[in-house]
């Protein structure tokens, strides 16, 4: 790898209660890269993101961010280091309206987008500002979930299945947004089941199976590895 790694996972193991979910995940993400975690349901992709974020508390191994070990830190401390998280279920708050949802995450450092820039990127959110967050359509909710973490100044984004259950038009739109973010220097670790989508945005892909990284494919090698990937994903 030419660039220096921003995030380094080494032998990360995670438990939920009694069940052992991650059995030693090791991966690297360099600054400015877009990397996806591909894999079937239950492979451990989401748990990997949650472990990085500190939301899966019972974890062991090493998660270094910007050279600093975070495996013993609480989620709020990890977030303050400049990592932002967009959960699979989107996590739009039903007791908050769209504007409140958008401005909820506190700004943790300079360099985040201004509200105007966010509205430029997601004009629909300005339109729907006063309505209750959960009254939005699925696609709008996903936009909101991504938009709100762009203001905070965090430059490392964890996106958990941003295209899940969305119409192709919306998926395309989200693809464009991810490319814009990449141009602006954001680093993104993305969980996906849809590798066709992943191949349009990502530099590299890791394949997760049974709580381990079983393969790594570079972005431009997706088409040549199509059959192998389909077998991994069971499509």
């Amino acid at each position: 790898m030419t660039r220096e790694s921003l995030l380094v996972l080494r032998d990360l193991q995670t438990w939920y209660g009694e069940s052992h979910i991650l059995h030693g995940v090791s991966l690297d993400v360099a600054e400015g890269e877009v990397v996806t975690l591909l894999g079937r349901n239950g492979a451990g992709k989401t748990t990997t993101l949650k472990s990085i974020m500190g939301l899966a508390r019972h974890r062991r191994g090493s998660v270094a961010f910007g050279g600093q070990e975070t495996v013993h830190l609480s989620p709020n401390r990890i977030a303050r280091m400049g990592i932002a998280f967009c959960p699979e279920e989107r996590g739009i708050f039903s007791s908050l309206n769209v504007r409140e949802n958008l401005t909820l995450p506190p700004v943790i450092r300079d360099g985040g987008m201004s509200l105007d820039e966010v509205y430029d990127l997601f004009p629909i959110l300005l339109e729907r500002g006063g309505s209750v967050g959960t009254k939005l359509s699925g696609g709008e909710q996903q936009m909101l979930a991504i938009a709100r973490i762009l203001r905070t100044g965090a430059k490392f984004l964890l996106l958990d299945e941003p295209t899940e259950g969305l119409a192709p038009v919306i998926v395309e739109q989200i693809g464009r947004i991810i490319n814009v973010l990449k141009e602006r220097g954001y680093t993104i670790l993305l969980v996906e089941q849809n590798f066709r989508f992943a191949s349009t945005v990502a530099d590299r892909h890791y394949v997760v199976e049974h709580g381990r990284i079983v393969d790594e494919v570079s972005g431009n090698a997706v088409s040549s590895n199509r059959e192998k990937l389909e077998a991994y994903l069971g499509v």
Binding site: M53, G54, L55, S74, P75, N76, I78, A79, R80, A84, F85, P87, G91, F93, S94, S95, L96, L104, P105, P106, I108, I149, T152
Partner: peptide, 14 residues
């Protein structure tokens, strides 16, 4: 927000 989903609010750095 924290009443609804405390973990997510933690993940925002709160």
């Amino acid at each position: 927000a924290a009443t609804e989903n405390p973990d997510l609010v933690r993940a925002f750095g709160v």
